[in-house]
Computed example of a mutant assay.
Amino acid sequence: MRGLISDTLESGGVDVVGEAEDGEEAVAVVKELRPDVVTMDVNMPNVDGIEATRRIMREVPTPILMLSAYTEDGADETFAALDAGAVDFIAKPGGEVSAGVTGLEDQLVELVDSVADADVSDRGPAADESEEADAEPEPTTHDEVTVEPNTTVLIGSSTGGPDAVERVVGSLPADADIRVVVVQHMPAAFTGRFADRLDQGTELDVREASDGDRIGRGEVLVAAGGEHLEVSSYRRGRLRVKTVDEDRGQGVQPSVNVTFESAAEVIDDPIVGVVLTGMGDDGAEGVKALKRAGARVIAQDEDTSVVYGMPKRAAATGCVDEILPLDDVAAGVVGGLADV
């Protein structure tokens, strides 16, 4: 697998400067060679990828891309690696390994190039980390908030998005009259676990979306991986969604554009669109549709984005009302609702 990954990256123009057989060696190699980016497996002998990531981020912070098993167990391990400081992940191929890796060449090279530019200065465990660092996040509590009724919040993200979405959704007040739809670029085996994590860190009720689901006040739907999520109808503060298993020419499934554009067509109450960190331009067309529908749009700023791709492309449309640091996004959503 190491040889195949190295060959794939080299053929894509990436200079592979070293390899390691296990996590212990990985830490030593990274400290010696100081690469721009590391690809890291989770399951390795002696020291696994999660612990190796934790040590690297503590001792010599370096952008890390995890290679994850495309399973629910792999999802749990991957989220643990992201908690330890990894920037993003790519699912390892099943079946014939050589054919699978070759098929992933473009995506792998693009992710490595993108992750290499990530700012990891504030990721991973602190030098004086304590046992609390691995504890589940506590839901944020809020004073009573009065906002515009029947507001739908739409959030789109990609690379670096899981942590960003958790921080935004975890800071949204449950006593506001909002419903939230999250589109995070993520494989199908991972989005259910992601929804569970969000649910543990917020006062809102979070679940993975299924075809025909309805949500109302205080509820959050996370688009399932491998399918687009459309808002199919909206009435009296409750919206219904449908899942679409077709390409739609977006290059990713689920696509932020598909969800944003469908919401703009059917929702006649206030909408707030949010574009967070991510690679590529998904969401740019979507924010245009939202703006035409009278929505308010927020994008994450460059300094706090792991990858300033999607927010930058959204801002370039001229349809973004505010560009905010990550920790100000939730307040921007709530504080601006009365003006929508």
Rank of each mutant, 00 (worst) to 15 (best):
D301K: 13
D113C: 12
D22T: 06
M186Y: 00
L276W: 05
V145E: 06
T102R: 15
P139W: 10
L276R: 05
I323W: 10
A330G: 08
P325G: 11
Q184A: 09
S210H: 14
S171E: 09
T191Y: 00
A133V: 07
D327N: 15
V297R: 00
A338M: 05
D327F: 14
T62N: 00
T62L: 01
D36M: 04
V287M: 08
L337Y: 01
T140L: 03
I5R: 05
G103T: 12
E19L: 15
V181R: 02
E138C: 01
T277D: 04
L198E: 00
G335M: 03
S98E: 15
R179G: 11
E265L: 11
D205Y: 08
D83N: 08
K31E: 14
Q184D: 10
S121M: 07
M44Y: 07
D211M: 10
I90R: 02
F89S: 02
G273E: 08
E208M: 13
Q200K: 14
G74S: 02
G103S: 15
E136L: 13
E19Q: 15
V244F: 12
G283M: 02
R296P: 04
V87D: 00
E261Q: 14
P137H: 03
E21G: 12
V182E: 02
M310F: 11
A69G: 11
G201M: 06
L324K: 07
A99F: 11
